[in-house]
């Protein structure tokens, strides 16, 4: 937990109501802030529009990986059955692709699913076990039933007072500093 070495790295506004959060997010988006995000206990639909975030590239990644899997399957079955060690089985053509369709399909799905798992980890920035939100103890409320707008002010471009004023304007009653533990090395490796 936090001690005297904690450093303020941002501001957090906490909301109890999902409508208030969506409205506040739209206000913040229109004010043109950069380093901010909403943190919610569950996916809130329509929030991505209110926040103005771009559509996720995840579907493209998954489709590409699936197609790679398909090509691997075609190369694997055809290459091994018709080129590497051709054996005629049951009088069928060496490249009897119909018999390989189950493998084409399964490898398509396997590669796509591996890409889906990898994209969850990569795009959601998982595998970073420490964050100021954990240090400040705000995650406990976010994972349960509260909604937060979080501003990171590490680069010092935005003043805490401006952010506080804006959050108050959106009707936020619970505004806290975002604290980070300083004394230890926060990287996991």
């Amino acid at each position: 937990m936090l001690d005297a070495n904690a450093k303020t790295v941002g501001m957090v506004g906490l909301y109890d109501n999902v409508d208030a959060l969506v409205q506040a997010a739209a206000t913040v988006r229109d004010a043109g802030h950069k380093n901010w995000d909403c943190h919610t206990p569950y996916p809130v639909h329509g929030l991505e529009k209110a926040m103005g975030i771009k559509p996720s590239p995840v579907p493209t990644v998954i489709l590409t990986a699936g197609l790679v899997g398909l090509i691997v399957a075609i190369a694997l079955t055809g290459g091994l059955s018709a080129i590497h060690y051709p054996i005629r089985i049951g009088g069928k053509a060496l490249l009897s692709w119909q018999a390989f369709v189950p493998i084409y399909f399964e490898l398509f799905v396997l590669f796509a699913a591996l890409a889906a798992m990898a994209s969850v980890i990569f795009f959601c920035k998982l595998g970073r076990w420490h964050s100021p939100l954990h240090d400040s103890g705000i995650m406990k409320e976010i994972t349960c039933d509260r909604f937060a707008i979080v501003f990171e002010t590490r680069d010092g471009d935005e003043s805490h007072e401006d952010i506080r004023a804006m959050l108050e304007e959106t009707g936020c009653r619970d505004i806290r500093p975002l604290l980070e533990q300083e004394d230890e090395d926060n990287s996991i490796i």
Partner: peptide, 20 residues
Amino acid sequence: LGWRGSHKAWNHYEKAYLLF
């Protein structure tokens, strides 16, 4: 894995979940 419930993350997560 250090899940923080960020909406940017939820946005990707929900797409991946749907595709799963």
